[in-house]
Write a protein that binds this DNA or RNA. Structure first.
Lengths: 218, 218
DNA sequence: TCCATAGTTATCGTATACGATTTCGTACTT
DNA sequence: AAGTACGAAATCGTATACGATAACTATGGA
């Protein structure tokens, strides 16, 4: 994920702020004051500033000159852009990875998917989301193109910053998602052609977007 | 292209260094010494450092802790990753844009392609490359997803930094490229379905990669 | 009461300074 | 002569300081 060696304060600040955004401590719209974060971490403002700029490049933070940084908002348009882009890069990543996925990995993915199904019964959306990423991460383990994988991760991060927002969990969609995962695994097991797998994976993400759009329209 | 308002020195430094990389003043492997660049531009090192980090995020430079930054190299593997990713995002961008391209834009694109053909006769590879981007830029003018467009531009920048390297201009490929452009225009004019257009656009990029790989194998 | 304006405060943008780390060259030893 | 160790130079990483800009507040007038 293009991580430079840890250890530098700039790097630590990046990781710290990113974690706070993703775990929801800093919610969208939250004002990121350099001096304040620097004091919190015990650093000076310079490395913090660098970290914020990097987060900006990833789309997690919005920076306005002479004003400051805020955690990127939950603009529906942005959501659409992100989901659409994600559907494309996830589709490609899945298709590229598919021929390299062995039966052991398939079994692991299936186990994760089973856990997801259980999460639905106990209604644990946070864990469900985490497992969902795990599921796809297993599939992408041997993705032959790290650039594409990087784009996937960026999309995920962006979505993570929207957590606990209106975008999550359209009713019924989660169940469908689990079913689609199984279907995807069967395609991979059956060595379906790349195009079929790509379409299925793409559609899997696109369906979540469609479900949101349908709901938003009401 | 995610440009923050110009005017800040950090921004100017970013633009200046990026331009030097793309135009070839700083060739791959070139050592970017912060203090030196700062002196050149008349700035202090802080904004320059920020600019370099941003270029690192875009993949144009490589940064090593306590050592410094160098212009990203011409590693064949990186080339493969970039081209493959580009084929995917260009394919998607083209398919998404296609329904929004009007006949005027088609005519403009065709004119650009005609100029490209002329470039081949006079053997003007630099202009040919620039026109190639123009051609696709016309098609992407009304791309409904700016994120995807941004990814396309990043890929182009990355390739641009490889200019005058071994990767450019596999013999015969350029002629083929012009023909594919025309075929693509006809698909768009004929309102072919999104999938067909996406495949054609993707293949257009992939073919250049394949041509390189075939040549490299010898 | 509301609006405009001036002054104050908060925050960013950049410069300078210095400590930390790496790299390179030189001298010494084997 | 080759290898190693030590030291100097170069460069980065971070802290601190200050000027610039925007946001806020209070005050006076309509």
């Amino acid at each position: 994920m293009t991580e430079t060696a840890v250890g530098s304060k700039s790097q630590q600040a990046y990781a710290a702020v990113k974690a706070r955004i993703i775990e929801g401590t800093y919610t969208p719209g939250y004002r990121l004051v350099l001096a304040k974060i620097a004091e919190d971490l015990g650093f000076s403002v310079v490395p913090v500033r660098e970290a914020i700029r990097r987060l900006e490049a990833e789309g997690l933070v919005k920076f306005e000159r002479n004003v400051g940084a805020t955690v990127s908002g939950i603009d529906p348009t942005e959501y659409l852009y992100t989901m659409q882009t994600l559907s494309i890069v996830e589709g490609a990543a899945t298709a590229l990875s598919a021929p390299l996925i062995d039966s052991v990995a398939i079994a692991r993915a299936r186990a994760v998917n089973e856990e997801m199904r259980e999460c639905l019964e106990h209604f644990d959306p946070v864990r469900f989301t985490a497992l969902n990423q795990d599921f796809h991460s297993v599939l992408f383990e041997h993705c032959p193109n790290p650039h594409i994988l990087d784009l996937v991760h960026r999309g995920w991060n962006r979505l993570a910053s929207l957590r606990s927002s209106t975008f999550r969990f359209v009713p019924g969609r989660a169940q469908e998602s689990v079913r689609e995962h199984e279907a995807l695994l069967q395609l991979i097991e059956g060595a379906a052609d790349a195009d079929t797998i790509e379409k299925a994976a793409r559609q899997h993400r696109a369906a979540t977007l469609d479900a949101y759009l349908a709901q938003a329209k009401q």
